[in-house]
Design a protein around this nucleic acid. Structure first.
Length: 492
RNA sequence: CGGGAGGUAGUUCAGCCCGGUAGAAUACGUGGUUUGGGACCACGGGGUCGCAGGUUCGAAUCCUGUCCUCCCGACCA
């Protein structure tokens, strides 16, 4: 028993860490707040990235790459955005080291190599991108400009957690420019839909689409739309954001275009992003006390075959049959691994692949061959059943689809059961403490009330859901009149 | 950035209070027996005790500084 997992009931935080580390998604590093994404974790991210990348391209976007460094003068051009990120920036001030005359074999920053202008390591790329767009946009014919980049960004977080909040993380950021406000808003909403589609249909994590309140809005945005998901401990996780930036950045960076009437106008902008944080969402939405549970559509391995045999002769027979099955599975495009490593015994392998969340395990032994069957175990429900070797690939293929659906349904039931209306303050506090999840409650619409509620309960307004039903009510805190409920939750 | 805990073999940890030159389990290597839920026997390899200073005849152990991790808080995706 080398890899014990802390149970969720015992210590949810530790359980999460155990899954990430022991599931081999990531490792700690020698750099404060930065993690190493291990091959298995990176394969997962690559699958997520590739699926989204295709969706971005299908909606007309192109990839490009902009610099890691942002000159301070550019960074501060859009004031609100700059202020919003100012407290968490890493800054390059020098460009050279030299040997330390006082300490043999050590290096020191060369004081004579100070940069004339500091470089900010991008916490997000609006500044450098809008500075660039200025040169790319002259006429309405240059619009819309639909660009995405996959990159790393740095936000100097005080308290970090694997995948959920690290000082450096991987993400994609889309930055688009449009000739009308309506078109930019439509783009913002379209990308929100793309995110929701991806997270629900590929990651099997249900989301709530909504709009952020002013205090939760992206610095520099007119409106911030988001998808919010719910973790098993009842805390919400912002899983993606899409911003309508109005003309804020166009004005800050002087990006104008000539419209059809030959008049100069500032362009309308959007930006949208999701990050490796999604991996954290995946872990916490589906995992159990045995380890990770990965949805088949993005799992690095969809099936693993574990052979069982006594002696070389049986081994050869089982190997041969396994190879046939693998060929059939691969023909259906299934990502399968054959683990015939003789050093680990079957029981060890079972536990190992459960830890790593592989959706389907196929156990193939001499006994099974006699009966022309294999034992198929599904990770999500842990059910095991013997399945005829005839048509086994098709069976696995269907099972993968079923697991994908079951994971989503299960997470959705949990989520739906954890959206609870509250009409009194007592009820509100009690629900937060005892049940968790989203609390649907009336709010008077002021930032002051939102802040007071946050101070009292640590709950924030996660979003105002799209197509939110309008109803008259009274604010949960102040009793002032309210036209709609909003979703509160404690969040990551 | 504040409070708490921790860092000793690949891993989990003991040793530290009371200073004398490092141990267990597991993992790893070889050989053999095994294989349907984390196998067993035998032999073997492996650690400048996070790092840097200091005290001392002598430091994993005492002191100072520093780095990294975890938990709680403030801040934030």
């Amino acid at each position: 028993m080398s890899k014990e997992i802390t149970s969720r009931a015992q210590d949810y935080s530790q359980w999460y860490n155990d899954l990430v580390i022991k599931g081999e998604l990531a490792d700690y590093s020698a750099v404060r707040g930065c993690m190493v994404i291990k091959p298995y974790g990176f394969a997962l991210w690559e699958n997520m990235r590739d699926a989204m990348d295709k969706m971005f391209k299908d909606t007309g976007h192109q990839n490009a790459y902009f610099p890691l460094f942002v000159p301070k003068s550019l960074f501060e051009a859009e004031e609100k955005n700059a202020e919003g990120f100012a407290k968490e920036c890493a800054i390059v001030t020098h460009y050279r080291l030299k040997t330390d005359p006082d300490k043999k074999g050590k290096l020191m920053v060369d004081p004579e190599a100070k940069l004339e202008e500091e470089l900010i390591i991008r916490p997000t790329s609006e500044a450098i991108i809008w500075n660039t767009y200025k040169g790319w946009i002259q006429s309405y014919r240059d619009l819309p400009l639909l660009i995405n980049q996959w990159c790393n960004v740095v936000r100097w977080e005080m308290r970090t957690r694997l995948f959920l909040r690290t000082a450096e993380f991987l993400w994609q950021e889309g930055h688009t420019a449009h000739s009308t406000s309506e078109e930019a808003v439509a783009e913002t909403r379209q990308m929100l839909d793309v995110y929701a589609d991806f997270v629900e249909n590929w990651m099997a994590v249900p989301v709530i689409k909504g709009v952020k309140t002013e205090s939760e809005r992206f610095a520099g945005a007119v409106d911030t739309y988001c998808i919010e998901s719910l973790m098993q401990d009842g805390k919400a996780l912002q899983s993606g954001t899409s911003h309508f930036l109005g003309q804020n950045f166009a004005k800050a960076f002087d990006v104008k275009f000539l419209n059809k009437e030959n008049q100069l106008e500032h362009v309308w902008a959007t930006s949208w992003g999701v990050s490796t944080r999604l991996v954290g969402a995946l872990v916490m939405a589906h995992g159990d006390d045995q380890g990770l549970i990965l949805p088949p559509r993005i799992a690095p391995l969809q099936a693993v075959i574990v052979p069982i045999y006594k002696g070389d002769q049986q081994k050869a027979t089982v190997d041969a049959k396994a190879k046939e099955i693998i060929k059939q599975l691969k023909e259906l495009g299934i990502r399968v691994k054959y683990d015939n490593n003789d050093n680990a015994r079957p029981g060890w392998k079972f536990a190992e692949y459960e830890m790593k969340g592989v959706p389907v395990r196929i156990t193939l032994g001499a006994r099974d061959l006699e009966n022309n069957v294999a034992e198929i175990a599904r990770r999500d429900t842990k059910e095991k059943r013997n399945v005829s070797l005839d048509g086994i690939a098709a069976y696995v293929n269907e099972l993968l689809a079923e697991i994908q659906k079951n994971l989503f349904d299960r997470a959705k039931s949990f989520r739906d059961e954890h959206i609870t209306p509250a009409d009194t303050w007592n009820e509100f506090e009690k629900l937060l403490d005892e049940k968790g999840g989203f609390i649907s409650a009336h709010w008077d619409g002021t930032a002051e009330t939102e802040e007071t509620i946050k101070e009292k309960t640590k709950a924030t307004i996660r979003c105002i859901p799209l197509n939110n039903p309008q109803e008259d009510g009274k604010c949960i805190l102040t009793g002032k009149s309210s036209k709609q409920r909003v979703l509160f939750a404690r969040a990551y």
